[in-house]
């Protein structure tokens, strides 16, 4: 547990959001992003991890016209403005889906599953979506 006090006496914890599911088909990805955006106001130490089909959330060229749903992928590019800049993607998840870093709309750090395990070990709060 790594907690530090910020000015004003508030606690800063390491918050990690694990995104496991494809962006469409279920609402988890969209509503996870809503938590990240609201949570940004709390000025915590935030990381986002994309594993399994969650890597599809940040792929380029999403076209949702056919399913009549909003393409919310541009919002991931806005995360930087919310000081959410630690984005990690599991290498094995990319490879299993024929994807590479060039297919993604945001700058990320690609990590092995073992490295992501270590990253999660360091977190104080893990929210899984």
């Amino acid at each position: 547990m790594s907690e530090e006090m910020m000015e004003g006496g508030g606690t800063i914890k390491k918050f990690c959001y694990i995104n496991r599911k494809a962006p469409y088909g279920t609402v988890y990805a969209l509503e996870s992003l809503e938590v990240v955006l609201i949570g940004a106001a709390f000025e915590q130490d935030v990381s986002l991890v994309f594993v399994d089909d969650g890597v599809f959330q940040i792929t380029k060229g999403q076209d949702t016209a056919g399913i009549e749903q909003k393409n919310f992928s541009p919002t991931y590019r806005a995360l930087e403005m919310y000081d959410v800049e630690k984005l990690y993607v599991e290498r094995e998840a990319l490879e299993a889906r024929g994807l590479s870093e060039e297919d993604l709309i945001v700058d990320v750090q690609v990590m092995s599953a073992a490295e992501i395990r270590d990253l999660l070990e360091e977190q104080d709060v893990v929210l899984s979506f």
Partner: peptide, 20 residues
């Protein structure tokens, strides 16, 4: 209430346990 209540719960508690 709002999503801030979830973040606050994460900050205030020793463990956040997610069921889903």
């Amino acid at each position: 209430s709002g999503l801030g209540q979830l973040i606050e719960a994460g900050i205030q508690s020793d463990r956040l346990v997610v069921f889903g």
